[in-house]
């Protein structure tokens, strides 16, 4: 498996990141948006872990960073879902386009 070059991992991360970004920016369903954001963060983690093994100067720090990123992502998702629940209770929708109560 050492034959797999680092660039493949990086490309994977980039593709995942782009998919996530696309989803986060275009999807109507808030849950999917949150999932897309998680995808973006996971792409970052792939990057970090790849670099920690195959980077210019491999070091363990990348993995540490990835762990922190995971924990933060979890907290973010938890807060996002909690807020979504509060919103759903009041509004009965998870559609982003329905969030237009302001601008007046």
């Amino acid at each position: 498996m050492s034959s797999v070059p680092a660039s493949a991992f990086l490309a994977l991360a980039l593709i995942l990141f782009c998919i996530g970004l696309f989803g986060a920016l275009t999807k109507k369903n808030t849950v999917i948006v949150l999932i897309s954001i998680e995808l973006m963060l996971n792409a970052v983690n792939i990057n970090l872990v790849t670099f920690s093994k195959y980077g210019m100067a491999p070091s363990i720090t990348g993995q540490v960073f990835a762990l922190f990123a995971m924990a933060v992502a979890a907290a973010e998702a938890a807060v996002g879902l909690a807020i979504l629940m509060a919103l759903y209770r009041n509004r009965k929708t998870v559609n982003i386009d329905d969030m237009d109560n302001m601008k007046n």
Binding site: L25, I37, V44
Partner: peptide, 20 residues
């Protein structure tokens, strides 16, 4: 979240190029 993900992605490259 989107913005911090983007920034973090950028940071990951910085890390990759320097290893620290």
């Amino acid at each position: 979240s989107i913005s911090s993900a983007i920034a973090l992605f950028g940071m990951s490259y910085v890390y990759g190029l320097t290893g620290t």
